[in-house]
Amino acid sequence: MIYIRKADERGDVNLGWLQSKHSFSFGHYYDAQHMGISALRVINEDEVMPGQGFGTHGHRDMEIVSYVIEGALKHEDSSGNKYVVPAGDIQRMSAGRGVTHSEFNASKNEKVKFLQIWILPDKKGIEPSYEQNAVAQKGALTPLVTPKGSDGTLSINQDASISRLMLDEGESYSLSTANRTGYLHIVSGDAEVNSTDKEGADSNSISAEAFDVHTFSDGDAFAVGANERVQIQANSPIEALWFDLPPA
Rank of each mutant, 00 (worst) to 15 (best):
A72Q: 14
L175N: 03
Y183E: 07
T56W: 03
N179S: 04
Y183D: 01
G11K: 07
G125N: 13
K74N: 11
E209T: 15
D89G: 00
K124F: 15
P143C: 05
I2T: 10
I2W: 04
L120H: 14
Q19K: 12
V85P: 09
N179L: 02
R60Y: 11
H101W: 10
D31V: 09
Q91A: 07
G125A: 13
F114Q: 14
L141F: 08
L15A: 11
D159N: 12
E192S: 01
A223I: 08
T177S: 07
P86A: 15
S107R: 04
A87M: 02
G58M: 07
P246F: 03
L18S: 08
M62S: 03
L241R: 13
Y3G: 01
G149Y: 07
S217W: 14
S174L: 06
G170Q: 01
N133R: 10
A140R: 00
V48E: 10
F222S: 03
A160C: 12
G51H: 09
D151W: 02
N194C: 00
Y83C: 07
I186Y: 02
R5T: 01
Y83V: 10
P128V: 05
V187S: 01
I4L: 12
S66D: 06
S161I: 10
T56R: 09
G170C: 05
K111P: 09
R41I: 02
G125K: 00
P121R: 05
E110N: 13
V230M: 08
I232K: 01
I238G: 05
N227W: 08
E127R: 14
P143R: 09
L18I: 06
W17E: 08
Y29W: 13
K148W: 10
G225A: 12
K113S: 03
M62N: 10
I162S: 10
N44Y: 04
T177R: 06
V99L: 07
E110M: 01
L184V: 05
D8R: 14
R180Y: 04
E131T: 15
V99I: 15
D122M: 12
